[in-house]
Design a protein around this nucleic acid. Structure first.
Lengths: 225, 225
DNA sequence: TCATAACATAACAATTAGATAACCTCAACT
DNA sequence: AGTTGAGGTTATCTAATTGTTATGTTATGA
């Protein structure tokens, strides 16, 4: 449940800032309030937040300026910027987006809207990405150690499962034989080449669905749909 | 020439779809139009686009439904979804965001706004530099070990692939026969000259597209449309 | 027209993966 | 401890694919 995501709020009106912080904290975000542009930049460099909520109208440096400065700095490459605007006209939006903002909210702010948009922006960054693979009619759940083909559950053995999961984690990518060996068997263990074939065969047999392609002399790859 | 990003447009009104496509194409995006939800899903699975522009109101499956289905499928982990709405009320936005959309645009659409938002969404995706060769209508992806001619996938054998990749890596450059031999077969292996010809022939045959020029008495070179 | 180089085809050789069964290891159960 | 069984590895044989060579044909240029 814990995101442990850092959100910097750059907003000069204390009331609004507090409301935003309150709702964010309720949803398990870490909040860092700043009350003008310069302070926001300092705090940002110190914390490297995942998201910055940036009011456009601030004394001193405007939100647009702050945004441009942040975007120049590669430390904030993965930091999302959500701008707060009084007006919701196109011109303002375009200026903001060109400065590097990712999204906008117009005042007055609805907490519900705020939280959904924050959620949408940070979904991409979410560290705890679900490892369940869902690829067309085949899905693989490493937590349950289960594989489904068209909702039919298939029980794979350990090595078989690891192998399938590896291939399916990057559909289309070709895995060389020694790549497979080192990732599943490790570099110190020595097993013959035929071992891989046999496991591949068993997977194909059990799945009864052709999703692994052989590239002779090179390796194997997973193909979907 | 820069992006090579795929954008799927799911919009039932042909006029609007065409306008969107037009502007996207002007900005060097590849466009794939679909005119209802089901078609959109099919096309998406086939192309794995970088961005999907999704009209909420569509006959058959609504944009929300399509969005939810897409978000279940890990092949679209990195695909952005931009929703088109007639209304811009909070309730619709929240529903959309919860379904997994990344952003919204309300109709009527301003081209300028559309393009800035598309740009903002895809800024994050900017393809990490990979050794994929992209030469007009032919593209070669060593990671997938696949070759595409006009989006048609061609399966080449190992040596054929290596040879094509070598030539295509420096379009226009003439590779001498012994240069080819030493780079693909190595200096210690001895193979006859005819071997190269045969491989060249097989490549030409499979690609069904003339991109390798013979320079009599010298060698071969790759030429791109 | 002749000489040379490259193309086409087929035949051959080498490589590589598929199939199957036997074997080994380890753990659970009697 | 002995038995059993599942998972995993290896050996061996076979089938298929890929790579190479041989040979004849065609194009090109002096």
């Amino acid at each position: 449940m814990a995101h442990q995501m850092k959100v910097l709020i750059a907003e000069d009106e204390h009331d609004i800032s507090e409301i935003i912080c309150f709702h964010l904290m309720q949803n398990d975000y870490e909040t860092y309030p700043a009350y003008n542009g310069v302070q926001a930049l300092e705090l940002a460099k110190q914390q490297i937040p995942d998201l910055i909520i940036l009011d456009i109208m601030m004394p001193g440096k405007s939100g647009i300026e702050v945004c441009e400065i942040l975007r120049m700095d590669s430390r904030f490459r993965d930091t999302r910027i959500l701008m707060l605007t009084a007006l919701s006209d196109d011109a303002t939006h375009i200026k903001g987006l060109e400065a590097g903002a990712d999204d906008f909210i117009s005042k007055p702010i609805s907490p519900k809207v705020l939280m959904t948009r924050v959620g949408a922006l940070l979904r991409r960054v979410e560290k705890t990405e679900s490892p369940v693979l869902n690829l067309g009619n085949i899905s693989i759940d490493p937590e349950k150690f289960a594989t489904f083909v068209d909702d039919r559950e298939i029980t794979l053995a350990k090595k078989e499962f690891e192998l399938l999961y590896l291939l399916a984690s990057r559909p289309g990518k070709i895995f060389l034989r020694n790549e497979i060996l080192s990732r599943i068997w490790g570099d110190d263990v020595i097993v013959g080449d035929r071992t891989i074939d046999v496991h591949i065969r068993k997977i194909r047999q059990k799945l009864e669905y052709d999703c692994i392609t052989t590239v002779k002399g090179v390796g194997y790859k997973f193909i979907s749909g």
